[in-house]
Design a protein around this nucleic acid. Structure first.
Lengths: 190, 190
DNA sequence: CACGATAGTGAGCCATGGTTCATCTTGTCT
DNA sequence: AGACAAGATGAACCATGGCTCACTATCGTG
């Protein structure tokens, strides 16, 4: 690959990250091109369609989530228990979700029910890593009784997707996390 | 108003109700006109802009919510307690939310934070009626200790808006309601 | 340095969807 | 019935936004 091509690819991804984080899938190719300092045609040289560019950006964002998840899992024995870590991870991901609409786009790509998609993510992909780490963390938290015994990964994904986005004031998100975490730990009534 | 005009107005509203319920604000004027059996121009005779037509449809949907809320409030003494009624109302509205995207459009019309908007709804409007009934129900539930003492109307609106829509399978919504209701009744930890 | 493959450009194509308006139709009143 | 205003029509207008492609520019190698 030629040097200028590599440089432009980087610029495009950088611009797309910013704009997709801000506007989600509604970010326009025109805007991304302008921000990257290239013409639209160049975007299409590197990514056959808008969808592909979005997918690349989304992969990045999921990478971040995977990192958070793996760190949370690793911290279980060193620091707080599995329940605490799972809660903190949940809060962190909700916060991220609010600042990065790429994650909303990611959620939109999942078929319903999401469980199947997540299980079949390509091994080694960011999604697969996140799924592995979160599943392990969830397992531990359940076995310790820190969360309701019937809690599944699908539940967590659903609750993450439901979280208020960044239009909402921050204290609303805190409230959401607080209420949901209470519901997660608590009784198995019905 | 001429008789044919009245008839067409009705048809347009009917068609809009169906299509907006199904597709939300993305329903097109063209589609609504076709379904109503009139030309697009006729829509614009009755509603200056798409926004106005949507608003009319949304008012209808909120009317339904207001009815549910008032019935729930009235049923408190007759049947179950305030906590039970509030929970059942929450579940019912989530279910409605899932079948009727007009409500999503309604949520989109609220500025943030929604509390201010809701308080300043025109007296007598469907929104005002719903707010009054739900506030009263909430008050009672709180005083009985059926829900956490710091629960506000804004919390409920937020949790309703966050509920999974109809793309999601029904059991996912049930799960959401179950978890959130647990979180609503439970402890005031943190 | 010259040349060809690789890359970049951006005007323009196409589709969608809200909105308008000149024109025709129809209800209603005398 | 005649006449006029109220109503309806739908082709056309405009803006947006994804995408293409004939053309130009640039990198890197012999």
């Amino acid at each position: 690959m030629r040097s200028d091509a590599a440089r432009n690819r980087g610029r495009i991804l950088g611009a797309a990250r910013e704009l997709v984080a801000a506007a989600g899938v509604d970010a326009t190719m025109e805007d991304i091109a302008r921000r990257a300092g290239v013409a639209v045609g160049t975007l299409y040289r590197h990514f056959p369609a808008k969808e592909d560019l979005i997918a690349a950006v989304v992969e990045d964002s999921i990478e971040h989530i995977a990192g958070l998840s793996e760190r949370a899992l690793a911290a279980v024995d060193g620091g707080a228990g599995a329940g605490k870590q799972l809660g903190a991870l949940f809060a962190a991901v909700v916060e991220r979700h609010a600042t990065d609409r790429a994650l909303k786009a990611a959620a939109g790509m999942l078929e319903n029910p999401p469980a199947a998609d997540l299980a079949s993510a390509p091994p080694g992909s960011a999604t697969a890593r996140a799924v592995t780490a979160i599943t392990a963390l969830l397992e531990r938290a359940r076995s310790v009784g820190a969360v309701r015994a019937d809690l599944t990964l699908a539940d967590l994904v659903m609750l993450l997707g439901a979280a208020p986005a960044d239009e909402a004031p921050p204290e609303m998100r805190r409230r959401y996390v607080e209420i949901v975490l209470t519901g997660l730990s608590g009784g198995e009534s019905s």
